[in-house]
Amino acid sequence: MKKKLQEEESRKGKLRGEKYKSEMCGKDEARKQALLQEKGREGKRVENFEEGLRQAGREEKEKEEKKEKRKEKKLENSTRNETRIGKGSVKGKGNENESRNRQSHGKVREEIRLRKNRGGNEPLKAKSPSSFRRSLLRDTLFLIIILAAALALLTFYPEKRSLVTTVSWKFFVELILILPAVMVLMGLFAVFVSREMVVKYLGKSSGVKGFLLAIFLGALPTGPLYVAFPLAAALIKKGARRANIVIFLSAWACIKIPQEMVELQFLGLKFMATRLALIIIFVILMGLTIERIIDWTDRRQVENKGT
């Protein structure tokens, strides 16, 4: 299975390479076609992604890595070529290529790019209208499919009807009562807690106070995890402690005040409180461990260079 996947990978790689060549030559027709193919493939991939990932988990990871590597290589090549030709600003061209590459990587990267270009003062959750609409459309389509499947199932098994509808109705009522409030909280946090604030406070804090602050700041602003990566990168550049950055990222990922309240609602106080306490403890331990490992490998690299 693995071998097959690899073969497929290399084939895809060739295809993508061809697409790239045609792009470089500027043949619009070929490029369009290749892009279309790419889109189709990407769609397929996303479907697979959502359906059968239990088995494909590891392979998917490898695939992503390979893809990433290849793309980076290409990017390098293309930028180099353009430098040689020397038309236009090299940096701008590079960005263009980059953006083209990212298209195939899906909405996540697209959003990041757009957000980055807009500068740091924007709210953490700004999204481009087109990708917003696209993902909304995709989810709605998925919803229609699920709805159709559910209706079909319920027509074939009428005896289950009342159970399914009462359960769904109960969850619907709970969610509709809780979600708007959560969204308002998240929206307000996202607007009022600016990125600069996080970087300012976390960049200079240290010790246990630093850990707690990292958890607190991670828990405050809301937005998906990928918004936090550029922030963390800025923190590294500012010289913040590695442990604090890891703690901040993890807190961002799984400790959110509004989300903890939703967990309280659906899983109960005992579950939520225990999980929260354990997460805080382990996240700090994890931050320290990662810091140790990174320091250790960095030192070894320096020693190797010295000899």
């Binding site: 700004a126 909304l136 998240m186 307000l188 946090f189």
Partner: peptide, 14 residues
């Protein structure tokens, strides 16, 4: 913030 909230809500609704 409210605008962001409304948008996120719509986005997550499906």
């Amino acid at each position: 913030g409210l605008y962001v909230a409304a948008k996120t809500f719509i986005r997550i609704l499906p």
